[in-house]
């Protein structure tokens, strides 16, 4: 099964699923960060200008620090996010799924200098397009990966009906399918929902709309309403 997931097992033996983020979102996040920095330079430039040469010296130091260390510091202290990444729901992780640490963060951001070549991240883009985890050169060397943040848990919105024990024990992924169905059926057309319910008619024992109702009841049962 081709998927964008990247599976990682934690030392505790629990599987983590990372969802590496592709070039477009990452480019947008980068752009946001660039604009933000640019805004800071403008403001700082105007503010420091009045201090003459001292101001210019300070401005240069600020530019230096922001250009090279802005992503590093944010990634460390915001656990892998920069403002741009936060905006787009991204985060940097080490390859093993842990939050990015000092060394890797510094590596990936210093190597941005190469990704940036020859013009506006040209090399970075080509590398991302060729890499299955959408890594740019800096990510490759640092052993990091940019992923979508996990959404907050949403509680399943399943139609409230009576709960009903399923006639046969179902596996976890099958239970999920039933719950998914119950959650999403109202967004499908009625006919299509009935069609889907008919597939599992041997389990529900009924067809068409009665089948849908049975699936709702099973979903409620799976969700703990017993």
């Amino acid at each position: 099964m081709l998927d964008t997931y990247r599976e990682i097992e934690t030392p505790e033996g629990v599987e983590l699923q990372l969802r590496p983020a592709g070039p477009i979102v990452r480019a947008m996040a980068w752009l946001v960060d660039v604009l933000l920095r640019f805004a800071i330079y403008m403001v700082a430039g105007i503010a420091l200008q009045i201090f003459g040469r001292f101001g210019m010296g300070m401005l240069l130091i600020i530019v230096f620090l922001l250009e090279w260390f802005y992503p590093v510091l944010f990634e460390i202290y915001w656990r892998g996010e920069t403002p741009g990444k936060r905006w787009l729901g991204l985060r940097v992780l080490n390859d093993n799924g842990t939050p990015v640490s000092w060394g890797p963060s510094l590596i990936r951001n210093l190597l941005r200098a190469v990704d940036f070549l020859p013009l506006f991240n040209g090399f970075g883009l080509v590398t991302i397009l060729f890499n299955p985890d959408f890594k740019r050169l800096g990510d490759l060397a640092a052993g990091t990966v940019v992923v979508y943040k996990d959404k907050e848990t949403h509680t399943a919105l399943v139609p409230e009906t009576d709960a009903h024990t399923p006639p046969i024990a179902l596996r976890l992924e099958e239970q999920r399918a039933v719950i998914n169905f119950a959650e999403r059926s109202q967004r499908l057309t009625e006919v299509r929902a009935a069609e889907l319910a008919d597939i599992v008619a041997p389990v529900t024992g009924s067809q068409g709309f009665a089948g849908i109702k049975r699936l709702y009841e099973m979903a409620n049962w799976f969700l703990g309403k017993r």
Partner: peptide
Amino acid sequence: LEGWDIEIAFHRMIDRL
């Protein structure tokens, strides 16, 4: 729109059973 994932999962369930 069409719940393809559900359809696949349902087919698999029935196959297994």
